[in-house]
Design a protein around this nucleic acid. Structure first.
Lengths: 336, 336
DNA sequence: ACTGGTTTCTACAACGTTGTAACCAACGTT
DNA sequence: AACGTTGGTTACAACGTTGTAGAAACCAGT
């Protein structure tokens, strides 16, 4: 049922290579030859065999996007943008879930399907600079935190600045006991550390002391963890009047815990998140958050990868900063 | 930097095929030969070239999962389960977003990367039986609605029964003016039609009339559509005391619209959804919903595909029904 | 030593594609 | 008329792997 170049060639009465030339849009083919070949292709419903093509060319036309979890909305939204941007380059995107595990990220980085992908866009949680250094040269772009100036391109948002801005916004609302949810002591917590730094900086800017008891950690960044952390804060008796959660799912969990505790948002406690996921626009109350430009992040990542794949294979690693803005909604509104 | 079987063979002092045998776990290789080859493999960090392997074997080891949108949480969650189940069969899953468009689904079904994937799990919105019939034989499993007994395997949930049960639950709460959100007149609305049928059946069971004005349509099934439909219902003056939304994101949007209208859930209006996405466990209020066994759906789909790929290539198409249950939460609680 | 069977290994071809080099024909230029 | 140039086409080899067939070595059991 599947036909090959040879079948098309026989039917069109030309050589195999001529058919190949037609398929690949080679210029110098006589119009009537081209027409004959195209008719044969259509009649046989010929489709090129990509395995053979990529064996021959050394390229597959597939890039991989490896994210910790697809059912974290931020990554799902990001995936859509990467797929869109990649499509413009004629690439198919293989989406891989690493689960955030160290070993799985290593596997992803070391080539997933082995020679199956031309490049990788990786959103690492657990990968270290050593890991990266030990990998043979699969062109790679990292999203999120830089892995200590590892040897790969990066697309980042300015986590410190963003966290500082949104914390400052809470300060501007007159809040004084501002908690933070999402700290992680583990090596995976690179983003957490940066966001905490921004939070602390904003407090210092405002002349507010940094109170360790207001900082709650969260192993993962799911809704359940946010709810648990919020409950812990409330139980500990440190009566916060605002919370900055290090991502939106944490914040949605916190909203839930506050609701269960009978506290009003934003009147009693203002809540802010990070990521600007779709849910936050419809939650009750809607969620104030840092909105990274995900579309831009996806596009920049694809373009960096495109660069690696064509021109500057051994250019020094670049780091691009994607813009962000604050999305002020009900949970911590524009003015007090 | 990339090595081939030949390089390993030379280093180990054996033939290329022997290395291939070692790599593929062939039994009859002398232990010391095997050890020598394995050392050479490790020293060279050899990785098989999957393009070459699949050209030779006619199999790639990749299956594709094509869903309308990844940032609809239901599909993201489903994707995770499919990936997990596929991994147990040694398959890599290429995740593809069709956008729900007719043409894109056709493209996905007709082979995405062309010879690149061994099989396809497709969650179609717009595909018709004619489309399927016209496709050459890529092994395929369809999720969700059957496409009018098309020639492919299916994994479904019993939409009519599930919708009937959850509507009956609303009836059981004493609600009498039960609205439905999510109807679609387009060909894409197969699920919508089944769920509407279940809704209507439950009303009939309870001796309640079917009132067309209580049925709101929604082009897509996003939060924004749910909110808009809910607002339209409220504005139309048909004062519903319950709403069955055809999926959870619609329901979350409806919750939002009810909140903005100053109505209490469930006191004034009970709300039920369909899908049991993570969000619904943390929304305010938490969401009563139909919980299809997504883990099972993913697993069944992979196993049907496995069957197609090995034994029964031309067996008659099978349809498997995945179980579902009701998850009763605050938005339409257990008892009135 | 001879048989038949198994284990261990190898040479070769083939999977379907494209890059290379080479060919012929037609053309315009000297 | 000889020349180079370009357009259009083709034969061939190669990409890295594995299936096939078979050779060589080994092992009993006579």
């Amino acid at each position: 049922m599947r036909h090959r170049l040879k079948d098309v060639a026989e039917r069109a009465g030309v050589s195999v290579k001529t058919v190949s030339n037609v398929v690949n849009g080679y210029q110098h083919v006589r119009p009537d030859t081209r027409a004959r070949v195209e008719r044969a292709i259509a009649e046989l419903n010929y489709r090129p065999n990509l395995s053979a093509r990529s064996l021959r060319k050394g390229r597959t036309g597939i890039i991989a996007l490896a994210v910790p979890e697809l059912d974290i909305p931020y990554f799902a939204e990001l995936a859509r943008h990467v797929v869109t941007a990649a499509a413009e380059h004629g690439w198919t995107v293989l989406i891989d879930q690493t689960g955030g595990g160290h070993e799985q990220e290593r596997r992803a980085a070391s080539g997933i399907g082995d020679h199956l992908i031309d490049g990788l866009i990786l959103s690492p949680l657990a990968l270290t600079a050593d890991d990266l250094a030990s990998l043979d040269g699969l062109p790679m772009v990292l999203l999120g935190e830089r892995v200590d100036h590892g040897p790969a391109d990066h697309v980042v948002v300015d986590n410190v600045a963003a966290a500082r801005e949104i914390t400052a916004h809470l300060v501007g609302l007159g809040r004084r006991r501002i908690a933070a949810i999402g700290f992680q002591r583990t090596p995976e917590g690179a983003s957490a550390r940066l966001r905490l730094a921004g939070y602390a900086a904003a407090l210092a800017d405002a002349g507010l002391g940094y109170d360790e008891r207001l900082v709650a950690s969260a192993t993962a960044w799911h809704r359940a963890d946010g709810a648990a952390a919020m409950r812990a804060l409330l139980d500990s008796g440190v009566r916060p009047d605002a919370v900055f959660c290090f991502n939106d799912t944490l914040a949605l969990g916190a909203l839930r815990a506050l609701h269960e505790a009978g506290l009003r948002v934003p009147e009693d406690v203002a809540v802010a998140g990070f990521d600007d996921i779709e849910d936050g626009r419809f939650s009750i109350p809607t969620l104030t958050t840092v909105a990274p430009d995900k579309e831009r992040i996806g596009r920049l990542a694809v373009e960096l990868l495109a660069g690696r794949l064509t021109a500057d294979r051994d250019a020094p690693p670049r780091e691009l900063v994607a813009p962000h803005r604050l999305a002020l909604r009900e949970s911590a509104p524009d003015h007090p």
